[in-house]
């Protein structure tokens, strides 16, 4: 079983988010980066569990510059066999998907995992795009997955219940909470990571179809208004007219 896990680098969850260059770029000054938790905790760990149970290997792929190697090595420390970094700035979801699809095309992976979304831009786009580019089935937001031979049974949490889906490999799946439990790399894994292959691939020529015009932050100092508990009419008025929540 050959599994590819797509991982992104995202800001650490408590990082201060600021923008620069006329609010068109994320300001990385002083920001610590981590592997996108959906990629790490759910996609990568479930991929490792599947290969541990059924044999096979897990490869990590990332699109980004060499500074991303630190994040990729964590994936190797957790247990992936090897990694590929496609050496390009990830300018859009489509660009990233095209790079990964181009790489994966010749490798015949049985399963391609992504996280359900990245915690920075929350697009949930790459998995579906890779599936389309490779002409593979795509299951999004899967919260569990079992494998019997080449047949996978997946669950998706949907409004009001659960959807159970069955399909044969190869396919692309985006992993959501519930798919696996976070696995913390141990010391032996961390030491082994340095010795595992981290290959650098040249990016395919590809263009992004969109550009960011502006990022807008949520106003930081929205004042707290104290309302007399007896005055429900005022609460309703504020929720309706100011917060526009009702």
């Amino acid at each position: 079983m050959k599994i590819l896990v797509c991982v992104s680098k995202t800001p650490e969850t408590t990082a201060n988010i600021n923008f620069t260059n006329n609010n068109t770029e994320f300001d990385t000054n002083g920001v610590s980066f981590i592997m996108n938790p959906y990629d790490e905790w759910y996609a990568l760990v479930r991929a490792l569990e599947l290969t541990e149970a059924n044999g096979g290997s897990v490869t990590i792929v990332n699109v980004g510059p060499s500074i991303n190697d630190a994040v990729i090595k964590k994936g190797l420390a957790i247990g992936a066999k090897d990694a590929v970094r496609i050496d390009a700035e990830p300018t859009s979801a489509l660009f990233v998907a095209k790079q990964i699809a181009a790489y994966a095309k010749s490798e015949a992976y049985d399963i391609i995992f992504t996280g359900k979304e990245s915690i920075d831009y929350n697009g949930s786009l790459v998995g579906g795009m890779i599936a389309e580019l490779l002409d593979l089935p795509y299951i999004s937001y899967a919260s569990s997955m079992e494998l019997a031979g080449s047949t996978a049974t997946l669950q998706r949490e949907i409004e009001g219940g659960t959807e159970v889906v069955q399909l044969d490999t190869p396919f692309v799946v985006s992993a959501a909470k519930g798919m696996a439990e976070q696995r913390i790399p141990n010391m032996r894994g961390i030491m082994m990571a340095k010795k595992k292959p981290l290959n650098v691939a040249t990016a395919e020529a590809a263009q992004s179809n969109e550009k960011v015009v502006e990022f807008k932050e949520v106003p930081k100092d929205r004042a707290i208004k104290m309302i007399n508990p007896e005055d429900m009419a005022e609460l309703v008025r504020l929720l309706h007219e100011e917060a526009k929540a009702i």
Binding site: I34, A70, K73, K74, A77, I184, P185, M187, A193
Partner: peptide, 21 residues
Amino acid sequence: KDYDKEAFDILIDSTKDYADK
């Protein structure tokens, strides 16, 4: 010689994950 900066960072970050949890 078997270590590098990334290994040190992964170790302290993983320790923090474990300690948090």
